[in-house]
């Protein structure tokens, strides 16, 4: 029981990070129908940006308060990663829009390889680490000498996910930008005829996805304390899986999918074998897609005849 609750907490934390990355996949897929394979590497890049700023702020400028440092790091990482996201869309995807469907996909794989190699060259191939930023936690309950703890960093991660999901959901549902995004999703040419700048709307979608990836990257760094140039791939693929599982195109679905993948992974590691945790996560995807092809919260496409 104690182990289960502890794994539940750990799983939800990991799932929150997956969920944040998955939103970027789901929004981009929703609006231009393209899987942005470089998104995982954007996430990795943002973790490095966060790392650099964190070390800069704490060691060089000597900012004592971790809370302030974390907030500044988060904001800066979001801004800079958004710029990267914007630039990638502008350089690698926009010129290929209207080309055949596979072209932007191949371009995305190219960007992904470029980003991980770029970071490898600039930052080195070794793991980079930071001293633990947030220590301690709350002991939820103790039984048979096993204390179930909720670490402060886990609280930060879950709270950040909840808050950002609410804000982004509000943006998509209630603001003019969100309406434009949903309109472009359904019919880009018609949206343009109503005066919507489609290119700008797509750019902003990439920016929003990258900003959330930056939050995930910062949280990843906060949680594990280490990051390497190759860390974009596996979390990226799992977040993509989460987006598909939750129903691609659906924001709450992406977070739900992320939480499920995170939970399956940690619970499997705790009770079965840690080596096969990825197999378990991807098997769940396969099983769900067989019975619910459009994902858990995805809308099935119904053609009215």
């Amino acid at each position: 029981m104690e182990v289960f609750v502890q794994q539940l907490v750990n799983g939800l934390t990991l799932g929150s990070i997956y969920g944040l990355i998955a939103i970027g996949y789901t929004m981009v897929f929703g609006i231009i129908g393209m899987v942005n394979f470089a998104h995982g590497d954007i996430f990795m890049l943002s973790a490095f940006i966060a790392l650099i700023f964190f070390i800069f702020l704490t060691s060089w400028l000597g900012i004592g308060s971790i809370a302030i440092a974390l907030l500044i790091v988060l904001v800066l990482a979001m801004i800079l990663t958004s710029l990267w996201g914007w630039a990638v869309e502008r350089i690698a995807y926009r010129p290929l829009r209207g080309s055949f469907r596979l072209a932007p996909l191949i371009s995305a794989i190219g960007v992904s390889i470029f980003l991980s190699n770029f970071v490898q060259v600039v930052q080195g191939a070794r793991n980079k680490s930071i001293p633990p930023m947030v220590n301690g936690g709350i002991t939820l309950f103790e039984d048979n000498g096993y204390a179930v703890t909720l670490a402060y960093k886990q609280i930060i991660i879950m709270a950040a996910t909840a808050v950002l999901l609410t804000i982004f959901w509000y943006v998509v549902q209630k603001t003019p930008l969100g309406r434009a995004q949903r309109a472009c999703e359904q019919d880009r040419k018609m949206a343009a005829l109503l005066g919507i700048n489609v290119d700008r709307t797509i750019s902003l979608t990439f920016v929003m996805g990258a900003a959330l990836a930056a939050v995930a990257g910062t949280m990843y760094l906060l949680y594990y304390g280490v990051v390497s140039f190759s860390d974009g791939f596996v979390p990226g693929v799992k977040a993509f899986t989460a987006a598909v599982l939750g129903g691609i195109g659906s924001l709450p679905g992406a977070v739900l999918g992320g939480l499920i993948i995170g939970l399956v992974e940690t619970l499997w590691s705790a009770y079965f074998s840690i080596e096969y945790k990825d197999v378990a996560a991807f098997s769940i995807l396969a099983i769900v897609l067989i019975f619910m092809p459009s994902g858990i919260l995805g809308r099935p496409e119904v053609e009215k005849v």
């Binding site: 003019p176 930008l177 309406r179 434009a180 309109a183 949206a191 109503l194 005066g195 919507i196």
Partner: peptide
Amino acid sequence: VAQHNRLM
């Protein structure tokens, strides 16, 4: 949606 620009 048709009044997007003004609202934006």
